[in-house]
Nucleic acid binder design. Structure first.
Lengths: 333, 333
DNA sequence: TTGTAGGCGTTATCAG
DNA sequence: CTGATAACGCCTACAA
């Protein structure tokens, strides 16, 4: 591979000048610029990004930590981030935390040791204190789908409480009052907030919360089936089921059908996230839209603005969920 | 951040010695090793990976190009690759090609210019010739889910022809002989091979191929619904529908239901890939398992073995699909 | 086993 | 506007 040195020799200029035309910032006369550019194409020169990084103390890479690489939720998120960053010539280094504290920390260490210019995290197991402390470090840290007090400017989050409220309200408005709820793991902030929204909707409609219609799931299909099984075993009647995410809703739909329930007539179900498959369940799942893809774009814009000093980018830190009405809620007016 | 120089000073040894203990290869006496390690922890030293890369001409990063970051298929694939590589201390740089020739080429250029030690590609639009030529280059190239003649050693592929055969055979064995087929985009090698398998199954059972029961879809839900709509409009009767992937199968299930068909009684459907959601459609989708996650692991092992010179790794280049029987095929014996 | 010194390919700070 | 030249932090013969 040709180096900057060979280019400078062929063009008959100094290293510094070549560097200048590469980086387009400082002024170079048109004539010399031409000479240099000709030399570059002639040699098929391509800057060595590693050397650039070392000298400039910029790796032009941003680290991303997600819980899982698979799964519709993270896919959308990564797609948003990558598209935005890639267009800016930055690249993404992706790793996983599997929602476990140790692995999340290890992943973060890994990204930092990789000299990322910034890291975007979707962490669930790690504490707020840890994150606050992490933000003191040299590497800028941005948080997805999580709002940590005092770090507001580094967070891109969804109003999960509102989403939780909307979901339960949607079901109440169709006449339901015996409402079961399958929550996500309560160590996750999202899950807690969604539950809080559920409780508020209940309260605002004077429906008492019933412990036996509550189940903590795992955000996966199994959580949905286990939860529904639990409720059915409980014998306490209910006509609607609110799930804290679509995967669990899907799991409970499958299980409900295995139990011979006719959906949505005998059981109304609502999910959360609006993952791509939600419109292909049967009945089509009514759910709460979670604009993760947009949020991914926004997180990327945030680092573009703060870390790479792009101007004229306006940032939205908080996103609002919306109700997506499909066929899985039965009206019992 | 502390540098190797400061460590060497604190430990009272030379730069070279510190470097040696970092890289664990060449021999260092236990005593000096201790001194150095103490100094490192005392300073909280962490090697600068950029500088290491520049000096050693190794970036310890491998580039991955997938069509999309979202989607169950690529998720599983990336998860496999990342898990394996991460465990080896390597990191992955991920970018997308969107199944378009220009974007795929651009993505590849991007990864190469990032000094990846190797790249793992899942490309669909780019030609075999281009790939053959690419492999002449300095950066080692590995191909996922694609078999290019002459590049066999760099490919990890699925026997798609067999898969296509298995799918159609499964349906034939249940007594079907009027079989519609929704193919994937025929510029993709996978799609072609799956179709070839379908044709072979038909031929082996003396079922003539009927042009009006063939439709080329897009591998997405819309392909499934569009295809089924097309067949229904055609009026040519059929009792089974073979889809070249699960997304299309899912789309056609949804559309079938919208048309009031009772599944699987009035229409048997089989998919391909066994994506995670396949078991949550209704009826549960019978499909062909595509071990992408395993294949991802294997691709990573291949680069570990060839590029990072790990020994004792045995490689399987070709994977076999298997039939996953669920509930979407009705027997009309 | 350990140390010395040159180099990896750029950027950046000075002069000129 | 252009050219020397010193970093950047580490690796690796080559010597000792």
């Amino acid at each position: 591979m040709a180096t900057i040195y060979e280019v400078s020799k062929l063009a008959g200029v100094s290293l510094a000048t070549v560097s200048r035309v590469i980086n387009k910032n400082s002024r170079v006369s048109d004539k010399t610029r031409q000479k240099v550019e000709n030399a570059m194409t002639e040699l098929g020169y391509r800057p060595n990004s590693i050397a650039q990084s070392l000298a400039s103390n910029r790796s032009n890479s941003v680290g991303i930590l997600v819980s899982e690489l698979h799964g519709p939720f993270f896919g959308q998120m990564m797609a948003g981030i990558e598209a935005e960053l890639r267009a800016a010539g930055k690249h993404v280094i992706i790793t996983t935390g599997h929602s476990e504290e140790d692995k999340e920390k290890e992943g973060i260490e890994f990204l930092i040791s990789r000299n990322c210019d910034a890291i975007i995290l979707h962490v669930e197991a790690v504490s707020d204190d840890y994150l606050t402390n992490l933000c003191e470090g040299k590497t800028p840290v941005y948080l997805m789908s999580r709002l940590v007090e005092g770090l507001d400017d580094n967070c891109i989050s969804l109003n999960n409480e509102l989403g939780g409220f909307l979901a339960t309200q949607a079901v109440i408005e169709q006449g339901h009052s015996d409402i079961a709820y399958i929550a996500g793991p309560q160590f996750k902030a999202d899950s807690k907030d969604r539950l809080a929204g559920h409780l508020r909707a209940l309260a605002e409609h004077n429906i008492p919360f019933n412990e036996s219609l509550y189940f903590e799931g795992d955000f996966k299909e199994t959580g949905g089936s286990d939860g529904l099984k639990h409720f059915i075993a409980n014998k306490k009647p209910f006509s609607a089921l609110v799930c804290a995410n679509d995967e669990m809703a899907s799991g409970s739909i499958t299980y409900a059908r295995e139990q011979g329930l006719s959906l949505p007539k005998e059981l109304s179900i609502i999910g959360f996230d609006n993952i791509i498959f939600a419109k292909h369940t049967y009945p089509k799942l009514t759910t709460i839209d979670n604009p993760v893809n947009l949020m991914g774009h926004m997180a990327a814009k945030l680092v573009l603005k703060n870390v790479y000093e792009r101007k004229n980018i306006s940032i939205t830190h908080s996103f609002e969920p919306t109700l997506i009405t499909r066929d899985s809620i039965h009206s019992i007016s």
